[in-house]
């Protein structure tokens, strides 16, 4: 699974992209966030407060309780601020 991070999430994690193979128990985006937070202090800092995070699966916005299913690309980022 390809992971993308943007804005301060990217800065805290330390990379904008990584490839991971989460265990089967990781079923939805919130599970993924909790699992990723154990990977490094940077991940832990970026993902500590899920209420500050938004997500997309295969380039579509989804809520954090969305099932991962056959997701190929998951992105985690702060609320958007364009315009």
């Amino acid at each position: 699974m390809d992971l993308l991070y943007f804005a301060w999430v990217r800065e805290a994690v330390g990379v904008g992209h990584e490839t991971v193979d989460p265990p089967e128990a990781v079923r939805d985006v919130a599970d993924l966030v909790r699992w990723l937070a154990t990977r490094s202090p940077g991940h832990a800092a970026a993902l500590a407060d899920p209420a500050r995070l938004r997500a997309a699966i295969d380039q579509r916005f989804v809520p954090l309780d969305a099932p991962l299913g056959d997701a190929r690309e998951v992105a985690l980022f702060p609320p958007v601020t364009g315009g």
């Binding site: 702060p78 958007v80 364009g82």
Partner: peptide, 23 residues
């Protein structure tokens, strides 16, 4: 709708320091 439905993130620079904009 663009403000909430498109994946852009703004960062403000004041001289050498930068802060991410909160929605």
């Amino acid at each position: 709708r663009l403000k909430t439905d498109a994946p852009f993130w703004k960062r403000e620079w004041r001289g050498d320091s930068a802060t991410w904009v909160e929605p």
